[in-house]
Amino acid sequence: MWVTSSLETVRTPTVIALGNFDGIHQGHCQVIQSLLSNRSDTAQVTVVAFNPHPQAFFSGEHQPLLTPLSEKATLLENLGVDQLVLIPFDQALANLSPQDFVKDILVAQLQAQFISVGFNFCFGYQRAGTAEDLVAIAGQYQIPVSITAPQTNGSEPISSSAIREALLEGNLEKAQQMLGRAYDLTGTVVKGQQLGRTLGFPTANLQVPTDKFCPRTGVYSVSVTSNLWSQPQPGVMNWGCRPTVDGQQPSLEVHLLDWSGDLYGHTVTVHLQQFLRSEQKFASLADLKAQIQADCEIARASLAAVV
């Protein structure tokens, strides 16, 4: 898939899905499905997002992402998208009127033939343009626009913010339903303090991208994938500061239940399956070891139907 941050190198003409698409959740998939249903033989199926996220630009604060760029690109490619355009979001872009955004960006630069957006899409100066405005403005250029209705999980609208809330609550079932898949953490295995090895439970310390949104601290049952194995491996993950050993910085550690070997330098993906318990401080390493053993037994039972 072609990924570009320059409007000068966009492959045109295009059919476009507009939005930030953080998480590529079930609602996003519907927006993209509408795009795929209206593709032409000559147009590039294109997702147009903004970098940085507009909220991060206006607040000046770090915005952790459910799907950093590498994850987002992989998920979009798997959905059948040809091109990801990350328009640099700056003050000049923020100042464009809805009319000028359509004329200067969508028509002149992207040569859009069809546009797909979610029901709550807003654009232009001070987010003045709505999805309905986009229909009217794009219609002046004979560009059809599809507006995807709200997608719900039960009675709750599916959104990236709702997924973040579910992850912070440790409610993986809810997050998985909205995403349509398990929430993943991908990173490189680096050296840690190797305390787990002394307890009989060696762990892989995973270094994830700094802009990756992390869930509630605690212990999880997980499945782990890597190019080292043909099948996912069952495991237990601890995410937190390890209070029993006076840890100061949060770390992400994974113990594989049925595999041992050297993972240093390898990239692995941890698929969160079930939140087992909150992080806690134990009176002794012996108590910690006993709890880890219990965690492994619970995780194995919960993963039996998954891995």
Rank of each mutant, 00 (worst) to 15 (best):
P64H: 04
V15L: 11
I16G: 03
T42V: 15
Q30V: 15
P68C: 07
S155P: 00
N95V: 13
V190Q: 12
V208Q: 01
I105D: 01
F89R: 09
A138S: 10
I147H: 10
L86E: 15
L185M: 15
A286H: 07
P157Q: 07
G80D: 13
R181M: 15
Q151L: 12
A43I: 01
M1T: 14
G27E: 09
A131Y: 03
P98D: 08
F275P: 03
L285D: 06
Q151S: 11
V222Y: 02
A49T: 13
R127L: 07
N171D: 15
L134T: 04
V117G: 06
S226N: 05
I32G: 00
P232F: 02
N51H: 14
L69H: 06
Q83A: 06
Q177C: 14
P98V: 08
T210P: 01
G180F: 09
H255W: 03
A17L: 12
I147L: 09
N120P: 03
Q26C: 13
T244I: 08
D258P: 00
G60N: 01
G261M: 02
P215K: 06
T130F: 03
M178K: 05
L96I: 09
D133L: 04
T210F: 09
L79Y: 08
G19K: 11
Q177F: 12
P234S: 10
A175I: 10
Q249C: 07
K212G: 00
P232G: 04
E77A: 14
C296E: 14
Q231E: 13
G247H: 08
N38Y: 10
T244C: 08
G196W: 02
V189Q: 05
I105L: 11
E279T: 04
G261A: 01
K281G: 00
A149Q: 14
L263F: 06
R300V: 05
V3I: 15
L75P: 01
L76C: 09
T148H: 12
P98C: 08
I158C: 05
Q99V: 13
R39Q: 08
D287A: 12
M1R: 10
E173F: 10
H53R: 03
P209G: 04
K191H: 15
D133Q: 05
P157A: 04
F114R: 04
N51W: 12
R11D: 11
G129H: 02
L185R: 05
Q140W: 05
F121D: 04
A56P: 00
H255L: 03
Q126G: 04
L168Y: 09
P13F: 11
I87K: 09
L206T: 11
K281Y: 00
S70V: 12
Q194C: 11
